[in-house]
């Protein structure tokens, strides 16, 4: 049962008038994540677009405490904060969130994250994935998908397929892993509520597909629509792993059936980073999606859920 829009809480933890770009997907994700977690939250933040959001000088638009740290240390930093809270016996009521971008998770922060996951440190790790280093000027990261043009892959686009962080985190045996998209705030809200309930059970990993109008090259008003298209085409399945068991979330459930999946070309043609695509490039994407769902299908079958 999906929560209704009118039942969502009214209290805001990000105030209007922020420094983010117009139509930023991160702001939707950040807003709904904080709404789900509530006021007793401490956010740890490495270098990313969300650091810029924190503001300069004496003012900030974010109502919960945010601590800034180095790019590679966000998971180590959050481990420390949660250990300190545990020592003060406040770890039940206060939740620690590490809020990093895809560069801080896939590339630079992966050693810290892997270490914290293995140590079973108690915090929620959020990776908002906009598929490149957007804050520093759209450089390629290992989350950038095949063929995407960035400022460091300017002519033919990226030649490699992106890393599968979901699988990497699954291999750590975490208690809760989920994927979200900014096009589905209700789904995102419920997943953060659930992650909070797993308090005391190690790292909970949540990945959010977050659109970026300047980086992806779509129209500003299509910021929400583009991530919806990503889910509808099957490229970004919304799913969660609860204590090792794979569950496909409601918005993505019908796309297990291949015939229900929409053409991925619609998603790709909205964005100027894929403007140069030929028929061969589209085929790589279609194969990628087919392989992704084949693997998920096998697993669901093994669990007896299909």
């Amino acid at each position: 049962m999906v929560i209704k829009v009118k039942d969502l809480p009214e209290e805001e933890y990000i105030l209007p008038g922020t420094r983010m770009c117009s139509g930023c997907g991160l702001q939707i994700a950040y807003r709904w994540a904080l709404k789900a977690l509530g006021p007793n939250t401490i956010v740890c933040n490495p270098a990313s677009c969300s650091t810029v959001t924190g503001g300069v000088g004496g003012y900030t638009p974010i109502k919960v405490p945010v601590m800034y740290n180095c790019f590679e240390t966000v998971a180590a930093h959050a481990s420390g904060v949660s250990a300190a809270l545990a020592a003060k016996k406040k770890d039940k009521e206060i939740v620690v969130v590490a809020w990093a971008g895809d560069g801080g998770t896939y590339d630079i922060g992966i050693q810290g994250l892997s270490g914290a996951a293995e140590r079973r440190s108690n915090f929620i790790y959020v990776c908002y994935n906009n598929q490149a280093y957007m804050n520093t000027g759209i450089q390629r990261s290992s989350a950038t998908p095949f063929g995407a043009k960035t400022t460091t892959t300017p002519i033919i686009g990226k030649a490699q397929v992106n890393k599968n962080m979901f699988k990497i985190m699954r291999a750590h045996g975490l208690s809760y892993i989920a994927t979200c998209a900014t096009g589905y705030p209700q789904d995102l809200f419920e997943k953060f509520k659930k992650a909070r309930e797993f308090n005391g059970k190690g790292v909970r990993y949540i990945e959010i597909l977050s659109s970026c109008p300047p980086g992806w090259g779509h129209k500003v008003n299509e910021s929400v629509e583009v991530t919806k298209k990503a889910v509808e085409s099957g490229y970004w399945p919304l799913m969660e792993v609860i204590e090792g068991k794979l569950v496909i979330s409601n918005p993505s459930k019908k796309y297990i059936d291949k015939s229900k999946r929409k053409d991925v070309r619609k998603y790709l043609k909205m964005q100027s980073r894929f403007k140069h695509f030929t028929e061969d490039d589209f085929k790589v994407w279609e194969e990628y999606i087919d392989d992704l769902w084949k693997e998920l299908g096998w697993e669901l079958e093994k669990q007896g859920d299909l």
Partner: peptide, 17 residues
């Protein structure tokens, strides 16, 4: 106000956007 690590939450941090 500038060097302290404590910031105040306020509407319109980036001005009238």
């Amino acid at each position: 106000s500038i060097l302290s690590s404590r910031q105040t939450a306020a509407i319109g941090e980036a001005g009238k956007t």
